[in-house]
Computed example of a mutant assay.
Amino acid sequence: MSRNQTHYYLALHQITSLGPVNWQRLIDYFPDVEAAWQAPAAELRQVIGPRLAELVAEQRLRIDPAAELEKINRAGVLVTTLQDADYPRLLKEIYAPPPLLYYRGSLPGETELLLAVVGSRMTSSYGRQVTEQLVSAIAAAGCTIVSGLALGIDGLAHQTTLRAGGKTIAVLGSGLDRVYPTANQSLAHQIIERGGALVSEFPLGTLPLKFNFPIRNRTIAGLCAGVLVTEARERSGALITAAHALEQNREVLAVPSDVTRPNGGGANQLLKAGARVVTEPSDVFELFGIQPADEPAVAVELQNETEKTLWQLLNRQPIHVDKLVQLARLDISTVSAALLVMEVRGLVRNVGDQQYCRRY
């Protein structure tokens, strides 16, 4: 796209009341966005109705297209529009896609397979464990993991992907200069540094308001070939993402959860409605034709006899620290100290409730 067209996309995008449906009407009616920006109010009325036409005519008097372009350049933010070749292919196919995406990092390639992994902010040890086990294998096999950078399952999906050496994309419900939650700002930087991207359809300066997140969830689903819900309550925003995926004719997958706990009620609800069951990475590999990565040989360096004893007792299934104390015949302080050191070195994982398992 020419520099002038980018100016006008950015300027018109400041009028957030338009929304993607009216944007599509403008794109369909006018030869280009510059013509839409400069059109008289009378002509705009024919396309988007009198109320919005007056709003556009009024607000554009206070918006300088060149200044909008300068703003994103200063912020180190890139943009892609529906008219650009690098606009994500699958997202372009949905009804009324976002006219403009702001991003930092690298957008997905034409042939890249994207899978959304989403879930609740409040997680259980089970939810964390299955998310890590599934995402680590899927990401290692070359699938790009997409999520919403939220606390809980979303952030864990991003972190696990990075640990597996994979690529991940975070879609925000705010402007890229308002990374939310602030607790995940460091994670956001890591995502960009490792070849992924932060993406938003909201202009710079947009706050993370509650009503932005269902819109964000629609974009997450639109970017991907499928949505995997690893753990979600019945009223979780992850179910909104899954609903958008169904509307967009994308695959919906879910991990079964303990029926006695509320954390997994949403995932179980999806399964009853017909979502594909996922209990191991091969379920995802087979569905999308992914070739699993070869299991790397991991050299484990154990520094003393306590670590060697604990390593022999641990496996991929969580075991309580009290049980480890009993089996190792060591005191609780020795076992706890050793587990902490092993966790820091990335050998073991604390899955919560004082339960530990191997990472490898």
Rank of each mutant, 00 (worst) to 15 (best):
R276I: 13
A328V: 02
T168Q: 04
H13M: 00
R218H: 12
R329G: 08
T260Y: 04
I145W: 08
P181H: 03
R121M: 05
T6P: 00
R358I: 03
P281Q: 04
E251G: 04
L78F: 13
R62Y: 13
N268E: 02
I240G: 05
M122C: 03
P203E: 06
I48C: 09
L107G: 07
G127D: 07
I153G: 05
E43C: 03
Q190S: 15
V321S: 09
L149N: 11
G274S: 04
T309Q: 10
L330M: 15
Q133E: 15
L313C: 08
R74L: 10
Q326G: 03
D32G: 02
H244G: 00
F30I: 05
I319S: 05
E43A: 09
R261Q: 14
A96V: 01
G152Q: 06
G274E: 05
D86E: 14
T230P: 07
R62M: 11
M1T: 13
T309N: 07
G148D: 07
S282V: 11
D322S: 13
P50K: 08
A170F: 08
N249L: 10
S120H: 05
G165V: 06
A188S: 07
K167T: 15
R250G: 10
L324M: 01
E251H: 13
V325E: 14
A140S: 15
W311D: 12
L314Y: 09
S17R: 13
A36V: 12
R216A: 13
S186T: 15
R51A: 15
L134V: 01
A267H: 10
L340F: 12
Y95V: 10
R349E: 08
H320N: 13
V341H: 04
L101A: 11
P256C: 10
G165E: 04
R74V: 09
A67M: 13
Q291H: 08
S257V: 04
T81F: 02
G264P: 02
W23G: 08
I192S: 01
D283Y: 03
S124R: 09
A67G: 00
D353N: 14
D32S: 11
E301K: 11
D84Q: 09
L114G: 03
L330D: 10
P181R: 03
Q317A: 13
E251N: 11
A141Y: 02
P31G: 03
T80S: 12
V117Y: 14
C224L: 10
A232M: 06
A67Y: 00
E343F: 08
T111K: 14
V21N: 05
N73T: 14
V47S: 01
I220Y: 09
V255M: 06
G76W: 06
V33R: 00
G226R: 07
S2N: 14
L78G: 04
L287D: 00
L101D: 10
T260F: 11
P318M: 01
L10T: 12
V255I: 07
R359Q: 06
W23R: 09
P98L: 06
I63D: 04
Q303A: 10
A297Y: 08
A116N: 12
P296G: 00
A42K: 15
T230C: 06
E93F: 00
G127V: 04
L330Q: 15
T161W: 05
A273W: 04
A225C: 13
V348T: 07
S120C: 07
R89W: 07
P203S: 07
P98E: 12
V135F: 06
R233A: 14
G195C: 07
R358L: 15
N4A: 13
A337D: 08
S282A: 15
